[in-house]
Structure formats: C-alpha cells, structure tokens
Design a protein around this nucleic acid. Sequence first.
DNA 1: TAGAAACTCTGTAGTAGCTTCAAGGTCAAT
DNA 2: ATTGACCTTGAAGCTACTACAGAGTTTCTA
Lengths: 135, 135
Amino acid sequence: MRIGELSRASGVEVATIRYYEKAGLLLCPRRQLNGYRDYGTEHLERLAFIRQCRAMDMPLASVARLLGFQHGAPTDCNDINKLVDEHLSLIRGRIENMHALEERLMTLRARCSEGKQTPDCGILHELAASARESY
Amino acid sequence: MRIGELSRASGVEVATIRYYEKAGLLLCPRRQLNGYRDYGTEHLERLAFIRQCRAMDMPLASVARLLGFQHGAPTDCNDINKLVDEHLSLIRGRIENMHALEERLMTLRARCSEGKQTPDCGILHELAASARESY
DNA sequence: TAGAAACTCTGTAGTAGCTTCAAGGTCAAT
DNA sequence: ATTGACCTTGAAGCTACTACAGAGTTTCTA
C-alpha cells in the first residue's frame, strides 16, 4: 500500500503520516524499488490507533507511551490508567476554564449594543477598566 | 520603569513583553542611556489590556484589532461586537468538544481496573477496537 | 506514443504564542 | 574586586502539523 492509499484508508493526511514517521510514532515501512513507501495492514492499524488517541486530544508523547505499552513487554497497567486519569483531569480543567471564559465573554458582550461608536463602546470600556483594576 | 518592574506590575513575563513589542502590540518604549527600555504608565495600561484579552484566550490578532479600535479614530463599534460574538461561539464550540471528549475518556477509563497487566488492559483493547472499526 | 495529471520523494520553512538559551553589557552591594 | 541581579540581542525550541519548492515516477487520456 502506498502512502496515498494509507492516507485515504486512515483519514490521516499524507504529510501527517510522514511527520509521524519522523516523530517515531509510525515504524518506517519498507520501500518499493522506486523509493516509494510500502505499507502493510500493521501500519494502518497503528495509524488508526494514533488517530483515535489524537481524536481525544492526547499529546503525541502520551500516544507514544500507549503504543509502547501495546507493543512492549507486559507490565502492570496502572501507568495506562494514570495516563488516562491525568488526561481526563486536564480536559475537565479546560472545561472549567472555558465555562468561566464563556461567562466573562457574555458579560462583556452585554456591555455594548448596536449602533454605538468606539469611544462609547461598553466592551472597550469594560476591558480597559478591568485592566486598570488588575494592577 | 524598567522591564522587570513592568513585568512585576503587570504579571507578564519579561520575555513575553519583549515578544509583544516585536509583534507590534506594545509600542516601543524610549531607552535609558544604557539602552534599557524605559516604560511609562501608558505601557502598563496597554499591557494590562492585552493580558485581560489573553486571559479570555483571544488570539493576538484580535487583541491587536481591539487596541486599534481603542486608540484609533472613532468608528461604528459593530466590528467589536462581532469580534466578541465570534470569539464566544468559538469558545462554545470548544466546550461542546471538550464535553464529548470527557464522555469518551470516562467510558474508556471505566474499561480498566487496578492490578491488570497490559495485555489484558481494557483501555488498550478499546482503543485498538475502535481503531479497527474506523477503517 | 506523447503529454498531462496525479502521485511520490526530500528538505525546509511557516503557523501561534510564547519559553529558553547563549553570550554578553550594566549596576548596586559587599 | 567580585558577586549577583538585572538588562541587551538574536536564535533556537516547543506542539502538531501544514505548505511549499523542486525533483522523479506512474498512470491516464488523446
């Protein structure tokens, strides 16, 4: 399978596949006589695995660790649980942040209505005021 | 005021202040005889304004536009409202994503319990399975 | 069979928003 | 005199790609 086919099968862009190879996440495939990369189903599996992890916004370093667990010698899998737990709290932290942000933006947005001029814009005034309060 | 003092007053790191200057967000301050940057309160104000915007995760390009509105000629402020509205929907989109992610991670996490070995880890199996389903 | 289109290769640079580093100059206190 | 804290610049590193340049290969179409 050439890289374009792998790309279509996996839904991962060609350039990204090469990037993963360089980053050590995807094993180097053998080459055809013309130098083209020649992938097998094991590459597709691995790439799809990476895609699943990335869809959950895991950093590539974590994906690499999971791949290590998957293909390495059997170990206690507490580290895997921990990795997922930590990622979960990261996401939850972000959600909290985003909610606070949403609140802040809604309040801010309510400060200005249509048809005003910039010197009277409640948004700019609010931002400037809270800036002054911050120091 | 030297850069370290401005940094302490604003809560923005020295290197970041210089970065903002290079990026054109912060006006170049005059220099002392020894070449040190010499800031006034107007810089502190502006920097604090930037910090407020960044705390709401606005991209620097948007911050630059807001600064332009703040210090430029008076205009209709619909563009400001629009900028905030768009940022708000961006944040809301992210929140939705994050919630879906949280769900997915919780389900994933529930697949494995303590004291297992990697070949029996439900997390790895689940990830591999959904990878296989994806192509 | 010629030529165009689609594919592949490598290496490099660009993106956002910083952070860190290297190598040096300045200044106050000991 | 020297230590330590501060300042200067420019360049590189970070994440995870994406885009481009310039070249070679394969495949389709006229």
